[in-house]
Design a protein around this nucleic acid. Structure first.
Lengths: 216, 216, 216, 216
DNA sequence: AATGAATGAGGGTTCATTCAT
DNA sequence: AATGAATGAACCCTCATTCAT
């Protein structure tokens, strides 16, 4: 059972289609995504992008005004469209949580988030590196993160707490634990993007570990 | 109680002293560290470094052959000296774990690791960004990580498992859980290096959460 | 009383009509004139011209083969059609100078020339800048200037000299003085095209000054 | 007899020396001056400048930050140093005009100004072209022209008017006539910088024409 | 005829690196 | 050892021009 549809690839493609850009420009964007992710934004020249995209340098600048524009075009869907979209789908999807046990819920939610990261690993790798040094990207991230509708999730935690399935800690501590569990699987992927993991198994293990703890 | 001495600052300075370099060169290294961390390696020019260090550009190239040499000089202590040193100290320090309960042990070990990261945040920020795109750094990291004496830690886990204080899961799963718990506190610091956290409280909370789990 | 009709605007439009070009192309020419004059030829892009003209870039190249062609199209009427036309009209107009005194004649001729410059300030500004650096334009100018029918004017000066109304200097010296007097009013306009001057008054003053001199 | 020393070449060299720049940088400046004057600022590439100066492209940017900086460096001495210097020398030089007749004075002053223009023809050609389209240069010119100490000159005119040697017109009309007379000799030089003229003869003729007028 | 996306040579500029002082 | 002016490859970007639609 899946609460939400986080398939970011399709959302990314959607957002590309919404931009109404030509195939050529899509290939430029794809080349940028690939090279920025593999080599880093600063280590990628617009000439390289043009070559990989199979177009002339000028074409790169036709749609996106400059190199920073390419970065924005690559990250913008992730930052300003996909994250909110996913978040709202999530919020909607959890309106009727009356069924599952918390463990199952936890596994589902973690699997979704992790799959999201895996499906968008290139973008997220770029985002990680740039958020660390690029003030503009950092601010955009902060703004979008601040908008995330945590209220719904909070209510849900309260629900499970009232059901006696979730420890009575404050929201942020529980959220932090969940994020940490996901990080333990995802951080290695950030550094080694070619690795593959079994998301279902990982989320199952993570959920179990999270809930049971390390006590025998 | 602290098992090991991870105070990396002193170790870093030690390694500097071992290099037997002049004050001038130390200021170059310090400037590189600061700027690489704040702006990123690729966004920092050697001229900027020289200016912040208060020396001429040529001086930067006197000791360190090129810009990559600066990166190596900044990261090398962390990669090839400090990590092993800390690891061995850790290995030595845990040879007689006969005292504390697992919770206390867990808190101590996590506090040490987290303090290590916090004390060396600039280097680690650089390391994170460069490991993602720099093949050479990535290989160095892999080699050093492979050398880490996990055997000792594994024995220790077995000891606590035999004591009935630690769940009977395989080593990597337990280690992953611990690392994840630390990540939940450290990852934000990577992105916002000016934030401060209460490491003692964080490690205490993390240890408790880890062991008890989210079950009420 | 006006000896000649120098209204260049109408002559310019005439020459446009003679070219038998479409409204679209006229707007391209108008946009080129405006932008070349305001920003300079080299600082104006064909894209800018197309935008101001409200057409596509390709359309600019339909009629005029390249950017240089635009410059030629803008300046050509001034260089090769208007100047000779005006000159010949002038020559014809002065065939019966039996009326006015020299002062009146001088004022009229200066007013005409100055009005000519003012009516065509944009073209003349372009001409000035390009003649200074563009060999082709410079040669065209030289050729056209060489063709000017000064003979008629020379005869006229002789007539006034015989009448005892004009000092007995050589033609070029007298011409130079007249041109200098006009320059003193026109050069500022070249630099500040938005300024306006009272041509009638200016020519009157100039003529008086020229004839009387600075002696009390 | 010369009232002032307008030899701009020496003043230009002085200002270069005051800048305390190397021979290499002087050659860059000289090359810029030559090429900007011959081809125009916009038609000259920094590569061309470097080649003519016999240095690498980077060297051009060492002292002068960008191409605009080269233009400023070339024009600044003329705009902000030489003009005021000449003007003040002029003001000082005329403090004791008790000797000469107005004709002689006029010839001297015109000869000085014209020699000034001839000595600095390259810079003035650049100035003319750029003032027409470059807002920054235009503003600089306006500011410097506004500073010119015309008061002294005005007094002098009054003196000659009281002496009965100068017509009783307002200052600006007289000044305009003088400037126009000089223009009639200088404007051709602006367009054909390789022409040479006999400044002494030109100023003599111009002064005579100005004073006597065209009346026989 | 009109369009405008695509082209790529060429321009301005940066910056790691060198070397004479 | 230290300096910093000089270097030039390589970068980002522009824009005159073309051509398939």
């Amino acid at each position: 059972m899946r609460y939400v549809n986080n398939n970011i690839s399709s959302l990314f493609v959607e957002s590309l289609n919404e931009l109404n850009i030509s195939e050529r420009q899509k290939s430029v964007l794809q080349a940028s995504l690939t090279l920025f992710s593999e080599q880093g934004f600063e280590n990628t020249s617009t000439t390289e992008i043009a070559q990989l995209a199979g177009v002339a340098v000028g074409t790169v600048y036709q749609q996106f005004n400059n190199k920073e524009g390419l970065l924005q075009a690559v990250l913008e869907p992730v930052i300003t469209e996909v994250i909110p979209k996913v978040a709202s789908e999530f919020a909607n999807g959890i309106q009727a949580p009356q069924g599952p046990h918390f463990t199952e819920f936890l596994q589902n939610i973690m699997q979704d988030r992790m799959q999201f990261v895996i499906d968008n690993l290139p973008q997220i790798r770029i985002l990680v590196r740039e958020t660390m040094v690029n003030q503009k990207i950092r601010n955009q991230m902060k703004m979008e993160l601040a908008k995330l509708p945590f209220a719904k999730l909070k209510e849900l935690f309260v629900y499970y707490q009232e059901q006696g399935q979730l420890v009575d800690w404050e929201f942020s501590r529980i959220l932090r634990a969940i994020i940490g569990a996901m990080c333990s699987y995802l951080v290695p992927l950030i550094f080694e993007p070619n690795k593959t993991i079994d998301v279902a198994k990982a989320s199952q293990d993570a959920a179990e570990t999270l809930i049971k703890g390390l006590k025998p």
